[in-house]
């Protein structure tokens, strides 16, 4: 079985974002970018499936600016076999919407015929949490979202999902789209020799047109603002003072 893993290049999760003063968006010029943390988890899971003999090839794909090939090289260094880069924009500030991404991914899935697509549950930039579900819908496949455990048994996958009240286990028919949650695994670091080897692994460059998809946003971004600032707080010197302040504020 082939496993397809979509990965996204996003602002590094430790960076405090800066909203541009003119309200046009978040400033991404000269900001550290990395692989979306959830996608590291899906790459790790795909490699583990290969190591367990359940997958024979791991293909990673990224859609966005040309620099996303760095993200793909990272995935190749972790252990993916080959990569597909779909260059869909030349401006890092143009975030391709999940619906468009899902349509391009559908084109790739039709071509590659993977038995499993492993996505991150959400990208930490747009916080949409939608691409995996949308791809499953477009393919007419089953979906297993927010996975914290994945066991493939023949043509079914048993997936434990992180839901509001606890955990839910479902069984889905393969092929399927699984979106991974934080607790699925601990992603490995790429070693230096593997980073070197990754430079020689195949990376195909494509365009959305190759899959018959036009990149057009359905949501027009009118403005991007800083969230409301909180009024400065105070430090109290003792528990007594804290209790007193809370009583004054009517909080206890």
């Amino acid at each position: 079985m082939k496993v397809l893993v979509p990965v996204k290049r996003v602002i590094d999760y430790n960076v405090k974002v800066r909203v541009k003063a003119d309200g046009s968006g978040v400033d991404l010029a000269n900001v550290k970018m990395s692989m979306n943390p959830f996608d590291e988890i899906s790459v790790e899971q795909a490699i583990r499936l290969k190591e367990a003999g359940q997958a024979d090839e791991v293909v990673v794909v990224s859609i966005g600016v040309k620099q996303s090939q760095e993200t793909l090289r990272t995935a190749l260094a972790m252990g993916a076999d080959r990569a597909i880069l779909v260059v869909a924009t030349d401006d890092v500030h143009n975030d391709i919407e999940p619906l468009t991404v899902a349509k391009i991914l559908k084109g790739i899935v039709d071509e590659e015929q993977p038995g499993l697509v492993l996505c991150g549950k959400q990208a930490i930039d747009n916080d949409m949490n939608a691409t995996g579900q949308m791809l499953a819908a477009l393919m007419g496949w089953s979906q297993a979202t927010f996975a914290s455990e994945v066991a493939i048994e023949g043509d079914k996958a048993k997936v434990t999902r992180e839901v509001d009240g606890g955990l839910q286990t479902i069984e889905v028919t393969m092929p399927t789209v699984v979106t991974v949650d934080l607790r699925l695994n601990e992603p490995r670091y790429a070693s230096l020799p593997n980073i070197m080897k990754a430079k020689k692994k195949p990376l195909d460059e494509k365009t959305p047109g190759d899959y018959g998809v036009e990149v057009a946003n359905r949501l027009e971004i009118l403005k991007t603002e800083e969230p409301a600032e909180r009024a400065a707080g105070i430090k109290v010197g003792s528990v007594d003072e804290l209790v007193e302040k809370l009583k004054e504020a009517g909080a206890v």
């Binding site: 916080d127 971004i221 800083e226």
Partner: peptide
Amino acid sequence: PIYAGNAVQTVKST
């Protein structure tokens, strides 16, 4: 909210 709530985006659906 986007970027872990560090920005608020106003979007108009077409």
